[in-house]
């Protein structure tokens, strides 16, 4: 019997796994953003000494994993499983990093929702007694995403006002079955929701229904209210997607405005950095959580956090064949015990 599942889509961990350490590493543009002080490392050159953007992204992910493990005073072979993903075809950033790290790998694709998906699976492994230490990680890189999904960097086109800026960065979280860090108490697995958005420059709108659905389901399943959380933060809806999600949740009967924001909004200063609707990418929620949010949890400035990474399951193939862009969002509740 599924004793740890509650409601429609939520897992309640009976011995909540702890997030022992986190590490975040970002590109130069993110390093000029408002959360700059919280990253472990800011690159001066987003090629990171590699020959290609793809290998640079892979190195970012490998570095984040290595830093998180060393912060926990552990060695790489101490880790049972690595769980991660990125945006690139065949998950090349993750797989090439895992090849070098020689860790058993669960490779995930959930577009930009992958970070919470990885934490969720990691927590399931720990709570189920299948592992003691796992590392959950994701990465994204502006230049790899542009060339795979959009246009060449030097093409002289205009970005739409609702478009978002893919974050260059990687975050890694080391989860352990016991420890003093913040704990993962609930995980709500999202459904794929598609309300027919066909505008590739408006991913926020494509993902907002999934985010609203997952948050509403999480609150219904757990019997919690929005006010039970100090902060509810989505992954990369951007400022227009956030507003749409607020409207949709209102229809579901949840008024969530005050303690609700988005990692994509927080990571860049839109006015100074010209990022339009905000940041996006697998790395967005990963570096915001592993940098800024984790610190807030440790300092107990935030005690109950709902992190909802959001992914637009966009494929150039299906899009060119006339399909709309489905969205998905996974939520994890992270809590810091004590006063």
């Amino acid at each position: 019997m599924a004793v740890k599942k509650i409601g429609r889509q939520t897992i309640k961990f009976s011995s909540p796994p702890s997030i022992l350490t986190t590490a975040s590493i970002v590109g130069p543009k993110e390093g000029q953003g408002p959360l700059a002080d919280y990253y472990d490392e800011v690159l001066e050159d987003d090629l990171f000494g590699e020959d290609s953007w793809e290998m640079a992204e892979s190195k970012l992910l490998k570095e984040a994993v290595t830093i998180a493990i060393s912060k926990g005073k552990l060695k790489i072979p101490d880790i049972d499983f690595m769980i991660g993903g990125d945006l690139l075809n065949q998950l090349i950033s993750t797989t090439f990093a895992a090849r070098d790290l020689e860790l058993p790998l669960y490779g995930l694709y959930g577009a930009c929702s992958t970070f919470t998906e990885a934490i969720s699976i990691g927590a399931v492994l720990l709570d189920g007694g299948f592992a003691d230490k796992v590392i959950a990680t994701t990465s994204s890189h502006f230049s790899t995403a542009e060339r795979q999904f959009r246009y060449p960097l030097e093409l002289g086109n205009q970005r739409s006002l609702t478009s978002q800026w893919t974050v260059t960065g990687s975050g890694a979280a080391l989860l352990t079955s016991s420890g003093n860090g913040p704990v993962v108490t609930y995980s709500t697995i999202g459904k794929v929701v598609d309300l027919g958005i066909t505008d590739v420059n408006n991913m926020g709108a494509a993902m907002a229904p999934a985010a609203a659905n997952t948050i509403a389901t999480h609150l219904t399943d757990t019997g919690r209210g929005p006010e039970d959380y100090d902060l509810i933060i989505t992954g990369d809806l951007g400022k227009y997607g956030r507003d749409i999600a607020v409207e949709l949740m209102k229809k579901e009967g949840f008024r969530i405005v005050k303690n609700f924001t988005d990692c994509g909004i927080e990571i860049f200063d839109d006015k100074k950095q010209d990022t339009h609707a905000g940041g996006s990418g697998c790395g967005c929620s990963a570096v915001v959580f592993c940098g800024f949010l984790y610190r807030q949890l440790i300092l107990k400035k935030i005690k109950k956090l709902l992190l909802v990474s959001t992914g637009a399951l966009f494929s150039p193939t299906s899009f060119q064949q006339g399909e709309s862009i489905p969205g998905i969002a996974h939520a994890i509740a992270v809590e810091m015990k004590g006063n």
Partner: peptide, 16 residues
């Protein structure tokens, strides 16, 4: 539902 959602998105979109 999709039509209504598109309306919401359109009204929320910034105007260039």
């Amino acid at each position: 539902e999709k039509k209504e959602f598109q309306k919401l998105v359109d009204s929320n979109n910034p105007k260039p």
